[in-house]
Design a protein around this nucleic acid. Structure first.
Lengths: 215, 215
DNA sequence: TAAAACTAAACAAACGTTTAATTAATTTTT
DNA sequence: AAAAATTAATTAAACGTTTGTTTAGTTTTA
């Protein structure tokens, strides 16, 4: 149905992709000009059309680049028979948070694109990726229901909305969090670790409460 | 600190504001031209500069218009002495979901702006509004901790991130939800009611699990 | 020496904003 | 109450920039 291109990109193309990703996430797709990108990446404007065809195709390349790169890591989890569903869910939460925290530009960009209705040709790519993630989590939860670890009547859509929505909002609002909690002085790296830990524990306790059987 | 303008807008200005809000939310701020807005609102392009000064000031007017309009409703809750903290929290959840579901364009636009770093002059306005919401919820939770309804060690920042993040993500991804769960045939109004109910129950059970003392 | 990588310059189209003129509404003066 | 004066609302056209893309030529690589 969806032709997943998953192109190979050369060094220069990756350089352009990562520069564009950073600028798009900071100023928005329409708010960033190809001249901005060219200047920031230290290349000629024409190279963007030369390598990608258009600005539109460039953002598609960004999503192609990041999504194909991201999917691989999660798949290994499912096969591992030695892990209990509870542990698998915990690992998925950690894995998602790690991906998001170390690719904040991309997730910021994805948040923007999600919120825009008349969207670029990446809608199908995102839909496809979301479906696969949803299917995977569903499988694990069904597994947990079979073993008796998890309760019946779990709404996976809302569970995923909570994982993704809470994580995104918390990350994107980190400057508010810093100001509101008077943490201006904390070094950036330490602050990021703090966010990760807080967020991880929070989501795990939510998932535990929603998944496990009442005592 | 922040001069909350809370201007009065005449009929024509409101018409422009609401048209712009709809277009901005659908195509993004930079993706929408003043000509788009003028055409859709059935007015001359120059009227936008005439009434608001610039496109930039127009989006500020949108946020001024919506945020000042929104804040009033929540405040009444706090004063009501007859309601228990538990009920108050439930009412806040319902109130937030209702506001969001009946102003989807505005919340979509706010999601976009939140995700963009180099943002417009509305940052302070949003920060101010968020702080006030946070303070209010904090107050209610402290009240619940005094009465013994709520446990100690509640992270209000993460609680709010879950309320706002989950709600936004669920709403913004409603088309995915429709497709993934084969609900294409359900009438729009019924579908919206369905989302509201699902989301409300979900968030209430999360808040209950995170706030109340373990049995 | 052919293909690939790269460049400066030019392209038309679209952008937000302003101008100058006209119509509509309101206030002031008779 | 009518006429005049003043302000507000509205318009079409033009403004100078900036936009994404292309061209035609040059340099580099294989």
């Amino acid at each position: 149905m969806i032709e997943t291109k998953t192109m190979e990109y050369n060094e220069k193309q990756v350089q352009i992709i990562e520069t564009a990703e950073r600028l798009f996430s900071a100023k928005g797709f329409e708010g960033t000009s190809v001249r901005d990108i060219a200047q920031e990446a230290g290349i000629n404007i024409a190279m963007i059309s030369y390598y990608f065809g258009s600005k539109e195709k460039l953002i598609e390349a960004i999503f192609d680049y990041r999504i194909s790169y991201t999917r691989l890591t999660m798949l290994g989890l499912l096969q591992d028979e030695s892990l209990s569903p509870t542990i698998k869910i915990e690992k998925i939460i950690d894995s998602y948070i790690n991906k998001m925290m170390s690719n904040q530009c991309f997730y910021r960009l994805m948040s923007q694109e999600r919120a825009i209705l008349e969207v670029h040709n990446i809608t199908e790519l995102i839909y496809d990726s979301k479906s696969k993630n949803m299917d995977m989590v569903k499988k694990i939860i069904h597994e947990g229901q079979r073993t008796g670890e998890f309760r019946k009547n779990v709404d996976v859509s809302l569970l995923m909305a909570t994982l993704i929505g809470t994580s995104n909002h918390f990350t994107v609002s980190q400057e508010f969090y810093r100001r509101y909690n008077n943490m201006k002085e904390m070094p950036e790296e330490e602050f990021q670790k703090h966010l990760k830990k807080k967020l991880g524990n929070h989501l795990k306790s939510i998932f535990k409460a929603l998944l496990t059987n009442e005592a």
